[in-house]
Design a protein around this nucleic acid. Structure first.
Lengths: 201, 201
DNA sequence: CCGCAGATCTGACAAATGTCATCCCCAAAC
DNA sequence: GTTTGGGGATGACATTTGTCAGATCTGCGG
């Protein structure tokens, strides 16, 4: 039996995935979690062979959770499952030692197959995605530029960003300007958009 | 047997939901579709008792698809399943004659229960969501304001919006200004954000 | 110790954006 | 038949942005 921990914030999707994996005779879902904190706790308690983590969730994301699980249970294999095949996500997932990176719009039957391959020590990564991640290069944003971009999403004004980050307005403008340049965007909103689709935020 | 059509763009989620419903002895998934066009075609071919549609998908959304299915198959009951419990979605779903409105973060076991209740002619709607939809009031945006807001998302400049919609720049500014006022936002980005979370786009 | 890069700030400037008053046209409502 | 509201436009104006050239200060590698 392959013992699997399932981490996904949307309860209905989580239950559905559990039922999907439950169909397989050699796979057993031994734990479920809805967020990063719960994920680590359940992992420690159930000691799964494989942890299957969604990236997008409230609070710390699935890759961060993966990193913590890996520290605590080095034997546990990590699989990342995500709606968005963003290059930056794949890169982070690899840095954290993930064995698989799956996108939710690939066919359902691939999930169990991937779990088996990962348990066997194989890596499972979409070749197209891998190429995109490599050709896109690493995240060009400095930590501060990233902070400012994050704060700028949702239409926050320069003045509010400055207040929230304890910076002068001029500094915020400078960071935004360089973030805009680095993302080849035409304004901060496009910059946020592009950085996000690259998985840089 | 309750014959169900499943419409969801993410293949893995679609497959997982099918497996979840497949566990029920009295429910049969007779068709699957990944977008609005496919949904109508499969509906006509399989004549399901119940169509379970996701809202967010590329191209026409699930509510639009629901409306077309209802026209073509008046006997088919419509259920809407969505990640985001946005008031405007619920309102549109009701206008289109949906019997159920479910959010993906409610528990998995509620899905089959809802399918049965809907087949029995009952409506299934989260009371909290219904209250939110009613208290939020109807969409205050005029059709044109809505168009302009949609075009403005993603950081498009005024000039580009004007070009795309064949309007003068001044007119675009006027529409954006009134959309900003109606959404109680401080700039167009916040306006897009708020309109979107209300389900007005 | 030097140089460099990142973080931070300032001031100045041009361009884009948001607001407002005012106008026209048209169709639906009263 | 007149009021009303949406669609569309113009011009003027204040504010917000994005850009650029400098200018500190810091820690780190050589």
């Amino acid at each position: 039996m392959i013992r699997v921990l399932l981490v996904e914030d949307q309860a209905m999707v989580r239950g559905a995935l559990a039922s999907l994996l439950g169909l397989e005779p050699d796979i057993e879902v031994v734990g479920e979690a809805a967020d990063a904190g719960e994920a680590l706790a359940v992992a420690l308690r159930t000691r799964p062979d494989v942890a299957l983590l969604d990236v997008e969730m409230p609070g710390d994301d699935g890759i961060t959770a993966a990193s913590r699980i890996r520290e605590a249970l080095p034997g546990c294999r990590i699989m990342i499952l995500t709606t968005f095949g963003r290059p930056g996500y794949l890169r982070r997932a690899m840095e954290v030692g993930a064995m698989a990176f799956l996108v939710k719009d690939s066919p359902a039957r691939e999930l169990a197959a991937a779990v088996r391959r990962v348990r066997g020590g194989e890596r499972v990564i979409d070749p197209g995605l891998a190429a995109a991640a490599l050709s896109a290069g690493p995240n060009p944003l400095s930590p501060r530029e990233r902070d400012v971009l994050v704060a700028a999403s949702g239409g926050t004004s320069i003045a509010d960003i400055a207040a929230r980050l304890h910076l002068s307005e001029g500094t915020v403008r400078n960071y935004l300007s360089s973030a805009i340049r680095k993302t080849h965007a035409r304004n901060r909103i496009e910059a946020v958009e592009r950085a996000r689709t690259q998985g840089w935020l």
